[in-house]
């Protein structure tokens, strides 16, 4: 690919005055890609107070940190962020841009791509450099995780969103050197077309699904809404959260935001307990990052047993009550 684009850019995210973990993870993989390309690693941070985070970002792998202290960028706004990222990229000409597969990355990356005409792959699980051709190789699940596609971009910038927790941040290295550079461009507020007028935080009872160490998930086999209270009881006992398949959400047994899978949430808990769900790939793709999967299903041929570590073939209705009872006893000790 002949062009004058050079260097790897990480689009950074900041929450409550701190660089979020996914950004540190992106700096780690970005560092490796930049080294393989023989290029530099840039980080972009937007919003008031980001300038003082530059030095820290350098210790985690960045060579140059570009920041804007513009007040209008304190909260994510799709129109403004797309504009700022676009004008920055046209000036700096990065060859690679990495985003978290997050609320911001999932919105911004496609919009920026639409404007700049690069090549984007979302939800990448692995990135590497073809050292001969000097281009980015991206691997991502397709068809709900049934297959893995290897993708290259024929255009620059080559862009990717990456799932949180795919890479480990680098060890902090205080001896690393770099530059922290302010972006002086003034932002025109009339660029805002879609205005955020309100934000509704969803009150979650107990542990948040994405952050839970234990997830108890149910599918078609749970049969009704009432039965989910038993799953909730188990989840509560284990300090976890409940999730569900698309069918269970569509049936209205649990709210849609508890859906795990391709068209729902992606979770990576320590323990995933799959009850009465067959394990369609569209569901499994949302929980494959789980460290330990326990499955209870009547059908010994169910796909869930192909991904589970521990399984029982039988009726969950006969397993759950004694399981809850025994857990109470063990916990009571």
């Amino acid at each position: 690919m002949e062009n004058n684009h050079r260097n790897v850019l990480v689009f950074g995210e900041v929450l409550m005055g701190k660089i979020v973990p996914i950004t540190l993870e992106l700096l780690a993989i970005g560092r490796r890609l930049a080294d393989d390309l023989g290029e530099e690693l840039y980080l972009m941070l937007l919003g008031e107070g980001t300038g003082r985070l530059g030095e820290e970002a350098i210790t985690f792998g960045a060579d140059q940190v570009y920041f804007s202290e513009e007040k209008l960028l304190n909260q994510y706004n799709s129109d403004l962020y797309t504009h700022v990222a676009d004008s920055f990229c046209r000036r700096v000409l990065p060859s690679v841009i990495l985003f978290g597969h997050t609320d911001i990355g999932c919105d911004l990356a496609p919009r920026l791509n639409g404007r700049i005409g690069g090549g984007l792959s979302i939800d990448c699980m692995d990135l590497s450099i073809d050292k001969e051709k000097k281009h980015l190789i991206m691997r991502r699940p397709v068809f709900g995780g049934n297959a893995i596609a290897t993708v290259i971009s024929n255009r620059v910038p080559q862009m990717a969103t990456i799932r949180p927790k795919t890479f480990q941040p680098l060890e902090k290295n205080l001896s690393r050197q770099g530059d922290v550079i302010p972006l002086e461009e003034k932002i025109d507020p009339s660029l805002i077309k879609a205005r955020v007028v309100n934000y509704i935080k969803e009150e979650v009872e107990g542990v948040k699904l994405e952050e839970a160490e234990v997830v108890v998930s149910g599918g078609r086999g749970i049969e009704d809404k009432k039965n989910f209270t038993l799953l909730k009881e188990l989840a509560d006992l284990l300090g976890g959260a409940i999730g569900a398949t698309r069918v269970a959400c569509d049936e209205g047994w649990v709210p849609a935001h508890l859906q795990i899978g391709q068209s729902g949430k992606v979770v990576s808990p320590k323990i995933y307990i799959a009850i009465g769900l067959s394990g369609a790939m569209a569901h499994i793709s949302g929980c494959l990052g789980s460290k330990y999967i326990v499955a209870i299903n009547k059908d010994s041929e169910a796909n869930i047993f192909n991904v589970a570590h521990l399984g029982f073939v039988g009726d969950w209705k006969e397993v759950l009550p004694p399981l809850i009872e025994r857990l109470r006893e063990l916990k009571g000790k």
């Binding site: 991904v307 399984g311 004694p322």
Partner: peptide, 21 residues
């Protein structure tokens, strides 16, 4: 590599409980 627990539902429940804890 799924380890399938044999036995009655109650035995399985007890086994799963021990492992989880």
């Amino acid at each position: 590599e799924c380890e399938i627990i044999k036995g009655t539902p109650k035995e399985a429940a007890y086994e799963i409980a021990e492992r989880l804890v």
